[in-house]
Each structure stands twice: as structure tokens, then as C-alpha cells.
Nucleic acid binder design. Sequence first.
DNA 1: ATAGAATGACTTACATACAAGTCATTTTAA
DNA 2: TTAAAATGACTTGTATGTAAGTCATTCTAT
Lengths: 118, 118
Amino acid sequence: MTMANTERPRIARTYSRYGREAVTVLGQQIRINRLERRLSVAQLAERVGVSRDMIQRIELGDPRCGIGFAFEAATIVGVPLFEEDRSKLTTRLAEQGEKLRLLPKAIQRTRMVVKDDF
Amino acid sequence: MTMANTERPRIARTYSRYGREAVTVLGQQIRINRLERRLSVAQLAERVGVSRDMIQRIELGDPRCGIGFAFEAATIVGVPLFEEDRSKLTTRLAEQGEKLRLLPKAIQRTRMVVKDDF
DNA sequence: ATAGAATGACTTACATACAAGTCATTTTAA
DNA sequence: TTAAAATGACTTGTATGTAAGTCATTCTAT
């Protein structure tokens, strides 16, 4: 009766606590919403267009999952992403695009001035 | 002798508008914060522990990027994920874990009752 | 104006994430 | 209670993501 290892073997890779927890919280929220909507893992997988294995990994918070798959699963079960409602997200997309137009396009560290003629 | 096909065949993948926009908004927000903090792409890549190419794809909203990489980049430049402050995220992690304990662990569609003796 | 740095856009070799399949174990509806 | 279904945990072959490198271009601080 050994407890099965629920994690896939992964090469050591460090994530910050906040980043890790965020991935896990998203997976939890997807599972919660899926269950509330009475969808099986297989049914959600079919709707997202991925394997059952992928949905399980997303819900467990595997950081290697493609962000597109995870966000698509979230979308299908109704987990809000960044904005409460969907039209707001579209608005924010445009607003941030505008903001980026105004910011410098490249960052350069202050250059060292070489004086070789003193 | 066939010519080597230099193009990588990519299977078309569809994402919902909301999912796509969410990935893009995250990438935008990461870039905005990175620029405001005067970090170059290479500097952020080094801090996240990925290649410069990866940061560029994350900021462009490539849905195939690992969610762990994207969230880690967001964390480093201070983009909030799901909760305003970090301690709140930890709290939510626990609360959702508790909520999952109370939900059914499996979803089954209502079974068909076969009456063959009428 | 210009030099030096940052970015964008490729390529290639390699590592690994993915789908598909199987089996054992829960779980739930009847 | 119990049978059917869902889930968890594996494996394997293959497709695809990733790092590293190069080059051209754009950008910014001076």
C-alpha cells in the first residue's frame, strides 16, 4: 500500500514560490469549475482538444504544460483570466498595446565613457 | 532524392478568442513591467533561467510556452497573478484545496437502466 | 550623428512534452 | 451492495519545444 507518486519525473528546475503557487491555483480552479459543471476529465480533454493526460497535468499544476492549453481549459470551464468579464479583457489588450507604444522599445544600461587621451 | 523540407510542419491548433487574448495580455504585461524596471530581454532571461528567445516568445504571447516559464517571468517583473498580493495567493491555495476536498472526486454521467424483462 | 547595445528573426541539434494506449484503483449512481 | 464509469499512474514512439548561435536591424545615450 505504498502511496503512488503523483508527480512525473522532472529534471530539477527551480521556480519561485509565487510562480509555483499561481500555476497550482489555476489548476485547482479549473478542477473546481469542471466538477461543478459535471464534466469528466475526458470530456474536458475532448473539448480542449488535448489528451486526458494533459488535463490531469494542468489540474495538478505541472508547470511544463503549454500556457495555451491551460488557458483554453480555464476558458472552457469558465475560470476568469486577468479580468472579470471577457469584454474587459479585450479592452485591456488594446489599452496595454497603446501603453507599449509609448514606452521605450529597448533598454540600455548607461554606457561607460572611455577617456583615453588625458 | 527529395529536397529537405526546412519548414517544420505545424498542425493547426485553434484557441478561443478569450484564451488567446489572455495569453497575449499576460505577455504584454510582462513586457510593460520589464521595461518599467529597465531590464533587457537578456537580463530577464538570465533571471528566469531560460533563453532570450523564450522571453521574446512569452512577451509575444506564444501559447506553446510552458506556463511555468511565463508565470516565473511575470513573478520576477512583478506582474500579479490571480491575487493582488502574494500572501493572498497562498491563502487561496489552501481555501481551494479545502473546497476540492468537499467536491465529488469523480463525475459520472447518469447510467442507463436496461429493462429487458417487461 | 554615431557607436554600442538591444532586439528581431532566423537556423540547427537536442531534449522532452505530447498523444495514445494499458492496467489497477477509486468512485458514484442505482 | 455492486457494476459501470472515472480517475490515477504508468509506458512508448513521435512530434515539437528549447537553447544556443548567427546576422541584420533598430534603438538609445552620448
